[in-house]
Design a binder for these strands. Structure first.
Lengths: 193, 193
DNA sequence: GCACGGATTTGCACTGAGTGCAACAGAGTG
DNA sequence: CACTCTGTTGCACTCAGTGCAAATCCGTGC
């Protein structure tokens, strides 16, 4: 009866080990030049087992994005009900700064993301899924009107894209800037230019 | 010496024939359940030749998006210099309405896009590339300031994402709505909510 | 009409991602 | 010591994508 939490625990440990091993190899040799066979060997596991943990090669690299989305959504749900949508989103995004990851690690990871076409695509898509998580949470923050659902989706998408643009710029600057300064600049431009 | 234009002409004819054949099959049988072998046979060409025209399976489905991006960019470049960035973008997007495609065709195509994960990803990525086309064209429309490049990218990205959100909603409504009404609602929400 | 030359098409063989299946190993239970 | 449940592994297969070389097509010059 105590097995279940135990199994799940080992599972998530193995999962993150595999992801870390993979990202290390991808960064070192390039995404396309790294086979899943190599990742499996490096992690001391069979190629087939990799597929028990991740649906595909892309997920192996991007798994953490889905988790980040859930973290942000959770934080967003905790924000006071009266708070303005943009304010709530900005506050929720800041959960990213609490994530256990060195600046070099972030830089390496994001560089990997933007350096490969199919990863860029996967990245874009994963963040588009964030929209589905965030929109229902910001819809109640909008004034009544028809099309409130559409409005909520648009705001969520725009905020995410501002974060992404800021992230890109942050990488371009080699990490020598404050991410949220860049984010604020982006939002300001979009809303008041 | 007259070969070149001629060859290019046939090339683009063949290219669009292949794309149309592919999209038809993808819509009918599903993207994942359609092999490139089948597409090739249906178009009366060898599988290998398909790869002379398209880099990969995804491009076969999404090729038109790249062209659309270039059309919009061209229109954007023609807008008067003093025009506000958002106004210019909206006007440029309207080139989409001039594209030779039936409403059912559009609906079918967009439904295909949103119905498959990897196509959604490719779609998101292709539109993210639009950003690279549009940003330089709207940067001169912004007031002087540091970070104008970042601002231009943010605005381009936000406008694109509004269009995409409107498109999604349009599909959800079965095409029974005006795309630009939806777009305006989205932009309004983002900028003034 | 005919041979030449460049480009396009095609077949072939190969790599690697992803999947279904069945055999296997290990841990907990009676 | 069987028995079962779960996770791992190997194996064989399909399909996307690529490099290469043979075959084919087509406009041009003779």
């Amino acid at each position: 009866m105590v097995q279940k939490p135990l199994r799940e625990q080992t599972r998530s440990v193995v999962r993150s080990l595999l992801a870390r091993t993979a990202i290390e190899l991808f960064s070192a040799k390039g995404y396309d030049n790294t086979t899943l066979e190599e990742v499996a060997v490096a992690a001391g596991v069979s190629r087939r087992t990799l597929f028990n943990y991740f649906r595909n090669k892309e997920d192996l690299a991007l798994g953490s994005l889905a988790e980040q989305g859930e973290l942000i959504a959770a934080r967003l749900a905790e924000r006071p009900a009266g708070e303005d949508a943009w304010t709530a989103l900005r506050a929720a995004f800041q959960v990213l700064e609490e994530i256990d990851m060195t600046a070099e690690g972030r830089l390496e990871f994001i560089t990997l993301l933007f350096g490969n076409n199919s990863l860029r695509a996967g990245h874009a898509e994963k963040q588009a899924r964030w929209q589905d998580l965030f929109a229902p949470l910001i819809e109640p923050r909008l004034p009544d009107s028809g099309r409130r659902a559409l409005q909520a989706r648009a705001i969520a998408a725009a905020a995410i894209i501002c974060l992404q643009t800021a992230n890109e710029e942050w990488v371009r600057l080699g990490g020598r800037a404050d991410l949220f300064d860049l984010y604020d600049t982006a939002v300001q431009a979009v809303r008041h230019a």
